[in-house]
Simulated assay, not measured.
Amino acid sequence: MKKILFVLSDLPKIGPTNQTLYIIKAAMKKYEVSVLTLFDETDCYSVKDNYIANGVKVECLHLESFINAIIKGPKKIAEYIKNNKVSLIHSYGTIADYICEKAHTKTNIPHIISLRVFPKEDLFSRMNFIKAWIAYSIHLSALKKCKHVVACSKSLLGLMRDKYGFAKKFIYIQNGVDVDKYSLDSNSCNNRDNNYICLSSIISRKRIHESIEGFLKSNISKNSILYIVGDGELLDGLKMQFNEYKNVIFVGKTNDVQKYLNSCKYFISSSESEGLPNSLLEALSMGLIPIVSSIPQHLEVLEEINAVYYSYVLGNVDELSKTIDSIPDDIISNNRERIVSSSFNSTNMGKKYIDLYSEIIE
């Protein structure tokens, strides 16, 4: 049985690591699979135990820093590949992509990169300028050299091709969601109270403040709750800024996202940049009605499945609040049925990756 090695920096509880596990579970039906992380887990909500519980072998290189990974990582991964007779490397993330491409040049083992963000928008929104510039430079180097780069959405592929000539070789496989995991309980979406949820990392490009301000300016906010579910560098500042509003509840990171999705009827996202938003897929699979910024990555999903949704122009808080107030009280959502029968499910995504693996190594 041929072996596939997945390489990531670590395994925090975020959308991309969930997507990677979906791919791994599909690959395990045909290949021997292992995961190699670069750094020790620092997030108390790490999904490492969940990977192991699903039968995935997880090992770590215990690299000490970004610089340490850049210098020592390629050699260590090349040694791991040779010692374990790996047939293919599949990486995700700036550092992992870079050092795996370096390891590929040492071993000639095929390398796939899953691209889940538009690099410049992502890196410069969460790092200082110097660190972001270095990370951006090395990521572009890896993406340019790698033969097999898979964008997680048609929209992201389009953005990359418009910006970079070398991206003409890229392909896309759309993200998926485990529709069985995110299933409705007896509290059908159409019977829920008019509560709202932002499910997101609390970082600048997600524009959580815009979602909150739009909600608070709406008339309906007087009798509704907005849950902010997620963690990030801006969380404490937002808590202080909106501390007086009892109808805005900061949940933080949680292992029970489904609980909050099940208590809400509407999903809000003011994000300015995405790959293909995992949280939107989760919300749709629970039947929620999205109210989103009209960026291509949101609309790709919503238009393709003909969802019940509302959109507004990014940055226009007044339009967001008016959109919220314009939604009829008796609106009916069939979004769960639409996402279940669509291509945006983890089974479909997994099959497409298996086909790609077979094409490359068989």
Score class of each variant (00 low, 15 high):
Val251Arg: 10
Tyr260Gly: 02
Asn194Leu: 14
Asp162Leu: 05
Lys76Glu: 11
Leu276Ala: 05
Lys29Asn: 05
Arg126Glu: 09
Lys29Asp: 14
Leu238Ala: 00
Asp43Pro: 12
Phe170Trp: 11
Ser343Phe: 12
Ile70Arg: 07
Ser155Leu: 06
Val248His: 08
Glu41Ala: 06
Ile212Met: 06
Asn278Leu: 05
Met240Lys: 15
Lys102Asp: 03
Ser341Asn: 12
Ala135Cys: 09
Gly315Asn: 04
Lys106Ile: 15
Ile134Pro: 12
Ile14Tyr: 02
Lys144Gln: 11
Ala27Ile: 03
Ser34Leu: 02
Ile112Trp: 03
Ser204Lys: 15
Glu210Ala: 15
Thr347Leu: 11
Asp43Glu: 01
Glu362Val: 08
Ala132Leu: 04
Gln174Asp: 13
Arg207Asn: 14
Phe250Val: 10
Lys147Gly: 07
Ile81His: 00
Lys206Ser: 06
Ser87Glu: 05
Tyr136Gln: 07
Asn335Arg: 04
Phe66Trp: 09
Gly55Tyr: 03
Val292Ala: 10
Ser333Ala: 09
Leu276Cys: 07
Ile339Asp: 00
Gly350Met: 04
Gly55Pro: 04
Gln19Glu: 13
Ile331Val: 04
Val248Trp: 10
Ala132Asp: 01
Ala69Thr: 02
Asp256Trp: 10
Ala103Arg: 12
Ile212His: 05
Thr17Gly: 13
Asp231Ile: 10
Ser87Ala: 01
Ile171Cys: 00
Ile70Ser: 04
Ser279Ala: 13
Ile95Thr: 05
Cys198Phe: 10
Ala167Asp: 08
Thr347Asn: 13
Asp162Asn: 15
Trp133Gln: 11
Cys152Met: 12
Pro119Ser: 13
Phe6Arg: 03
Ile249Tyr: 14
Ser311Phe: 05
Glu210Ser: 15
Val177Asn: 08
Thr42Leu: 14
Ser87Gln: 02
His104Phe: 04
Leu199Met: 15
Tyr98Met: 01
Ala78Arg: 05
Asn316Leu: 02
Tyr22Val: 07
Arg126Val: 15
Thr94Tyr: 09
Ala26Met: 05
Ala135Ser: 15
Lys25Ala: 01
Ala167Val: 06
Phe344Glu: 06
Ile130Thr: 11
Gly252Gln: 06
Cys189Met: 08
Asp49Phe: 01
Lys30Phe: 00
Ile225Leu: 01
Pro74Arg: 10
Ser343Val: 10
Ile331Pro: 07
Lys352Asp: 00
Glu300Ala: 08
Tyr182Asn: 00
Met240Gln: 13
Val150Leu: 09
Ile354Tyr: 02
Leu36Glu: 05
Lys131Gln: 12
Phe66Asn: 14
Asp40Arg: 13
Ile225His: 02
Ile24Leu: 09
Leu8Arg: 11
Lys206Met: 00
Lys3Thr: 04
Leu356Asn: 11
Asp180Phe: 13
Cys198Ala: 11
Gln241Lys: 14
Ser87Thr: 04
Pro74Leu: 01
Ile291Ala: 00
Leu140Asp: 14
Ile113Trp: 05
Leu5His: 00
Asn194Pro: 15
Asn191Gly: 06
Ser341Leu: 08
Leu320Met: 07
Ser183Asn: 09
Lys222Thr: 07
Asp97His: 09
Asn194Ala: 14
Lys72His: 09
Cys60Asn: 13
Tyr45Asn: 11
Gly55Trp: 05
Asn83Pro: 14
Ile52Lys: 12
Val301Pro: 08
Arg338Glu: 03
Asp318Ile: 05
Lys82Ser: 13
Tyr182Leu: 07
Phe170His: 08
Ala132Tyr: 13
Leu234Tyr: 04
Leu234Gln: 03
Phe66Gly: 14
Val149Phe: 02
Tyr196Lys: 06
Asn190Ile: 02
Leu88Gln: 02
Pro74Trp: 03
Glu32Lys: 03
